[in-house]
Simulated scan of single mutants.
Amino acid sequence: MKIRHNLESRQQSDVYSRQGGRLYVVNQNKLPLLRLLDMSAEKGEVFPNAMYSPSWNMNGHSVVYVTKGEAEVRIVDQSGQAIMNERVREGDMFVCPQFFVVTSQAGKEGFEWVAFKTTSSPMKSPLAGYTSVMRAMPLQVIVNSYQVSTSQAKDLKYNTGRQTMFLKPKA
């Protein structure tokens, strides 16, 4: 059984955005030993001033350790209450509970982290971007749910173009 995997291979990133960043996930498929531990890991890098799209862990918690750079990290619960809104730096650690939405805006030198997850097969769902929940909702549902105008709902639904997990810096 394979018991070692290299997270530094740039060619093997699971998600890559030329202007936004990259994400590597090591789960039970890449490292079968993780199935026995029911854990997984991810290594992320957000390029300078880019944003990691708001998303939530669907099936586990994450313990995040900042390995390089800094970022403004926001975590909110299911009712929209902020449980964390802080600047994190190299050496900091924080927890992102299951179903809580997290996003980060990298500083001018970028942001890198490693996260340990409490599931061997992690699933994440983005709130913004090309593959997001918002993009999949009918326009009228967004209008009624968030009590916004049709033009605001269109902005929420389509404003990120083809971007997914990483949103490029604003010019």
Rank of each mutant, 00 (worst) to 15 (best):
L7V: 03
L7C: 03
L7P: 00
S9M: 15
R10D: 04
Q11T: 08
S13L: 10
D14W: 00
Y16E: 12
Y16A: 04
Y16N: 05
S17D: 07
S17A: 02
R18D: 15
Q19R: 12
L23S: 06
Y24S: 15
V26C: 06
N27S: 14
Q28A: 07
N29G: 10
K30P: 01
L31Y: 08
L36V: 04
L37H: 05
D38M: 13
A41R: 05
A41I: 09
A41E: 00
G44V: 03
E45H: 00
E45G: 06
P48C: 05
P48K: 02
P48Q: 10
P48Y: 04
M51S: 03
W56L: 03
H61V: 09
V64H: 00
K68P: 02
V73W: 05
V73N: 07
V73K: 01
I75F: 04
Q78Y: 03
Q78P: 14
G80K: 10
G80E: 02
A82G: 11
R89E: 15
G91I: 06
G91P: 00
F94N: 12
F94H: 08
V95W: 11
V95D: 08
V95E: 08
C96V: 09
P97L: 06
P97Y: 08
F100Y: 14
S104F: 05
A106W: 10
K108D: 15
E109W: 07
E112H: 07
V114M: 09
V114H: 12
A115P: 11
T118C: 02
S120L: 03
S121Q: 12
S121P: 02
L127Q: 10
L127T: 08
A128Y: 07
T131L: 13
T131N: 14
T131H: 15
T131C: 15
A136P: 09
M137C: 01
P138K: 12
P138H: 12
Q140Y: 06
Y146Q: 14
Y146F: 13
Y146C: 11
A153R: 03
L156Q: 09
K157P: 13
F166L: 10
F166T: 02
L167G: 05
K168E: 12
K168M: 15
P169N: 06
P169M: 03
P169E: 09
K170M: 08
A171C: 14
A171V: 12
